[in-house]
Design a protein around this nucleic acid. Structure first.
Lengths: 189, 189
DNA sequence: CTACTATGTCATCAAGTGATGACATCAATC
DNA sequence: GATTGATGTCATCACTTGATGACATAGTAG
């Protein structure tokens, strides 16, 4: 029987605690800024267990990406491009930088990370986006247009979060969202 | 007499060599990834001189930002918004990430860095952009719209450079530029 | 020539990093 | 309850980093 017993020593729970703590700290400090000691402390777990369960720090990082990918229950399929872009903006804007968004905004990407990012984007974002764009008559390069929109939203959210563009940072989310929708709309005609 | 003698020991030349090497390495590796030893080596200069001339690594980083600001001879004043955005895109796209662009895309910004970025953006980018937008009849929030455009271009250039969005990365610059112009145009009507 | 300052060189420190392996302890199985 | 594998703890290593200060040398002024 596989009972859902709450064991005092539960490797699964430890794994999840580490992933959750890692996601938080990677969001806050970035990959380099988050130390394995800090992650272990926040998870209430000995840092050495990172090596046991994820080989090393990078393995844990990849695990956070997979985890986010799994939890991306938001379905964009079948929506208007403007609606997709609107929701994407709100998601990235509210939740701060998810590991995925943060990775996408970073300068150079490790090969494995790049692979995960691309798969996630293709399935969850660009796919539905391109589909909606075609349906709306965006013409041939709907894949490219979809990615341009994703990149644009990412840049807006990043600069909005870090304060580099003060007016944008202080604007109401809805006002910015309206502009983002406008951008999406302009790609269709 | 202040002659332009080429001295074998020239603190000015040393400073410039350090700034140039630092800019390159900050572009390639980011702030954390560029070590003072690597900067010194590329500059052909002992790393200890960083401390002498710029106090510490962060001082050198700020110096690279000022330097880029000084060298930003590109004048956007008086141009159409679409034209400004087009040139901004090409600049960031060709030259790779300048220190400024890289800083704008980073997650959290140090106070001093933030200050420099904001000043640079206000003077060189958002100012002319907002002016052009108003002239074109963009309505009230031209400051906000200008910053949204800057953020969008930044995100497009960053994702284009790091390969997170493959179609965008492989597209011709001119094709992307056309879409960027389209986005700018949509903000006016 | 001498002395003095600017500039450059070098060795080294203290702190922090990720990783590792020996050891301890829990919990399931017989 | 003894055995055994899974899980957790701890000390420590090897390495890198930014920074510092003592020292060396060039170039100039007197």
């Amino acid at each position: 029987m596989t009972e859902a017993v709450r064991r005092s020593r539960d490797s699964g729970a430890t794994r999840q605690a580490l992933i959750a703590a890692a996601r938080e700290l990677f969001e806050e400090k970035g990959y380099g800024g988050a130390t394995v000691r800090a992650i272990g402390e926040r998870a209430g777990v000995d840092p050495a267990l990172i090596a046991r369960y994820f080989d090393n720090k990078e393995g844990l990082y990849l695990a956070t990406l997979s985890d986010e990918s799994d939890q991306a229950t938001v379905k964009y399929a079948g929506l208007d491009p403007e609606e997709i872009v609107d929701r994407l903006f709100h998601r990235w804007d509210e939740r701060g930088r998810t590991p995925v968004a943060r990775a996408m905004a970073s300068a150079e990407l490790d090969d494995e990370v790049l692979e995960q990012i691309r798969a996630l984007v293709r399935l969850r974002l660009r796919g539905p986006l391109a589909e909606g764009l075609e349906k709306a008559g965006a013409g041939s390069r709907s894949d490219l247009i979809g990615e341009v929109l994703i990149g644009a939203v990412l840049g807006i959210c990043v600069t909005r979060a870090n304060g580099a563009l003060p007016v944008l940072s202080e604007a109401e989310a809805d006002e910015v969202a309206a502009l983002v929708r406008k951008i999406a709309g302009s790609m269709i005609g």
